[in-house]
Design a binder for these strands. Structure first.
Length: 507
RNA sequence: GCGGGUGUAGCUCAGUGGUAGAGCGUCACGUUGCCAACGUGAAUGUCGUCGGUUCGAAUCCGAUCACCCGCUCCA
């Protein structure tokens, strides 16, 4: 664990030092759970989003039977009509009232606590964790003593109810599950993870709205618009990349659990009887996508959710997890969920009062059916963090031990051009090479300081290739190319730099 | 929300009552001429903030803010 933490600390330090990621609002002391991407970080992030959009929307892989299908994009507003979140279940679902015990310092979910109470409303009550038999047994024992009956007779003189039915005023009479004194439980407090805001300048309750906790609902809300305007036919997918917000109680692990984050989501609509096939297709496609961008498969673990973990409407869900240096357990990068027809049905109910309002016609059978949905939902920032930790390399035998081994598609800077020294006509040879490359690839020119420092800087930025113009260049027109990964060098003709890059990067 | 820790230069940190420091990094000049090279020089600080004690506070006391770690929770 120690060395893992050290690695993570080094990565965080490098991210800051080289301008990948800064803490938000640092000059004012920062703000927990929010992060800024610097010059290199924002290039990396663009590369990730561009790769996803290209590979999933512009040019998606052939379907399970080799057939093609349509993928289209949307870009929805972050603030939507609050009814969207009632329909999606977020207003209820993300709202977990919590109860703290001031004595035992424990925290409980209010809906998971029960109390044993007698007829007398002024009498003592005994709380226990509903799903914990030991906790219940303890409460029963104490209650039996208090009511002066045997444990078997207790149910005759008391009733067991959910804590949520207890009057706020009566909380002083409750004995907490792990407390010795009465009245140590706080009243249930709301821990809704959605950010609230107000639409319009007046902060009235009627103008309350939410920052979206996921981008998916914008897609569902526009399902009919897209069907009506785009000539798409099932099976097809709608994709969106955008910001989402969750007011995490406890943001941790660098950018992994942030309060503001970006998602890349697909809602793929298909016929119910093909949904299992498409679910497996998207699960495998998404897993392979990460591998294709340099995430090693032994750190990447698809994990099928267990029956208990699944949401009640979901038939199946695979979390694609990655082994970050900050934890010994894999952490979720993406969830590929089979959502059945839950979302469209919910929006049908809430917006039109009809469950099947968004059913579509099957051309072959002339029957209307509710499309089923496969949802590959990826975290941009999480994959970005994974690509950074994956790229981070340390080799003490190198002059520059730390280097970032980014996949060529993700590398923020693809090449650098250096005159070995800033004189003897070398900058004049270097400049046209730089000017040509930068038209096609992000490229940097650097003539300052020693060549070693310049290579080291590019290693930390993860730049795959550096072209250096030296004394020999003026004589025979060749330059050296230096490879980031093994620091090897070769000479090529200066006219071949761009061609060399295209070839080696595969872009 | 509870408990613990930390706030001094861009970074890592030293400085326990008496002039604000080091290494690294950054920048300039010179030298060198392919791997964080060498020499010389420079810039960068309301010592987290506010208040108290004191002739005098980065240092002692109080409060406050922010961040980090653990618990809790978790797309």
């Amino acid at each position: 664990m120690g060395s893992q933490t050290d690695t993570m600390d080094k990565i965080v330090a490098l991210c800051r030092r080289r301008g990948f990621i800064f803490g938000s609002s640092e000059i004012y002391g920062g703000i927990g759970g929010f992060w800024d991407y610097g010059p290199l970080g924002c290039e990396l992030k663009r590369n990730i989003k561009d790769a996803w959009w290209h590979d999933m929307v512009q040019c998606p892989p052939p379907g399970p039977n080799g057939e093609s299908y349509q993928m289209v994009g949307v870009d929805c507003s972050i603030i939507m009509n609050p009814k969207v979140w009632e329909a999606s279940g977020h207003v209820g679902g993300f709202s977990d009232p919590m109860v703290d015990c001031k004595e035992s310092k424990s925290r409980y979910r209010a809906d998971q606590l029960s109390v044993i109470k007698g007829q007398d409303t002024a009498g003592q009550m005994f709380a226990f964790s509903s799903d914990d038999e030991e906790s219940q047994a303890r409460a029963v024992k104490k209650a039996a003593k208090y009511f002066k009956v045997s444990a078997d007779e207790l149910s005759g003189v008391t009733s067991t109810v959910s804590l949520e039915t207890v009057d706020d005023a009566a909380f002083g009479q409750i004995l907490g599950p792990e407390a010795k004194e009465v009245g140590t439980l706080t009243q249930p407090r709301d821990f809704n993870l959605m950010f609230e805001t107000f639409v319009g300048a007046l902060q009235e309750s009627t103008s309350k709205a939410y920052l979206r906790p996921e981008t998916a609902q914008g897609i569902f809300a526009n399902f009919k618009n897209v069907m009506d305007s785009t000539r798409v036919k099932i099976p097809f997918g709608i994709a969106q990349i955008g910001k989402a917000f969750l007011n995490e109680i406890n943001p941790r692990n660098f950018t992994f659990r942030s309060r503001e984050f970006e998602q890349m989501e697909i809602e793929f609509f298909c016929k119910p009887d093909t949904s299992k096939m498409w679910y497996e297709f998207w699960r495998d496609t998404r897993l392979h996508w990460y591998e294709s961008l340099g995430i090693k498969s032994d750190k990447l673990r698809p994990r099928e959710q267990t029956e208990e973990e699944l949401a009640h409407y979901s038939d199946a869900c695979t979390d694609i997890e990655y082994l970050f240096p900050f934890s010994e357990e894999t952490q979720e990068l993406e969830g590929v969920a089979h959502r059945g027809c839950y979302d469209l049905t919910q929006h049908g109910k809430h917006s039109k009062g009809k469950e099947n309002a968004y059913a579509v016609m099957d051309d072959a059978t002339k029957q209307r059916f509710m499309p089923h949905v496969i949802e590959p939902s990826a975290g941009v920032d999480r994959f970005l963090l994974a690509s950074i930790t994956e790229a981070y390399s340390y080799d003490e035998n190198r002059a520059s031990p730390e280097f970032m081994k980014f996949h060529p598609r993700l590398a923020p800077i693809k090449a650098a051009v250096f005159p070995l020294v800033a004189k003897d006509g070398m900058p004049e040879v270097a400049d046209p090479i730089y000017q040509e490359i930068r038209k096609h690839f992000p490229c940097q020119f650097d003539a300052k300081q020693s060549i070693g420092k310049r290579y080291a800087r590019m290693d930390e930025a993860g730049t795959p290739f550096c072209f250096t113009i030296d004394g020999q260049s003026k004589e025979d027109g060749t330059v050296t190319v230096r490879n980031r990964d093994d620091a090897s060098q070769e000479r090529i003709d200066k006219s071949r730099c761009l061609e060399y890059l295209r070839d080696k990067l595969g872009l």
